[in-house]
């Protein structure tokens, strides 16, 4: 089992490293990630959402629906814990 997991881990790592070969260097400002969608958040967040913190404006506004999902995740987890751990009332 241990050897099997080791093999799987090494294989996964190999795939990951293979993918890394084509990745941009760390902190490179010219990556597509920084150029395609996110510039609009930085440049227009203030006028569109009136929030200083761009992360907040994205979280609460541009991608607010994800945050609703996030809240739901927490709610689900809470309900899940109650459902799992709640004991039957003694009769």
């Amino acid at each position: 089992m241990r050897i099997l997991s080791l093999i799987i881990v090494i294989l996964t790592a190999a795939v990951l490293i293979y993918g890394t070969l084509d990745m941009p260097d760390c902190a490179n400002p010219d990556t597509p990630a920084s150029q395609h969608v996110s510039p609009r958040y930085v440049t227009r967040a203030m006028e569109e959402t009136a929030t200083h913190n761009i992360v907040t404006s994205v979280l609460g506004d541009y991608r607010g629906y994800d945050t609703l999902g996030e809240t739901t995740v927490i709610f689900s987890a809470g309900m899940a814990c109650i459902l799992i751990l709640r004991k039957r009332r003694r009769q």
Binding site: A33, V37, S38, P39, V42, T43, V55, V58
Partner: peptide
């Protein structure tokens, strides 16, 4: 003028909060 280059990309932060 707000330059996108002078601020860190906010989107991954948002995603990771979630």
């Amino acid at each position: 003028a707000i330059e996108a280059i002078s601020y860190i990309n906010p989107l991954p932060h948002v995603l990771m909060l979630t």
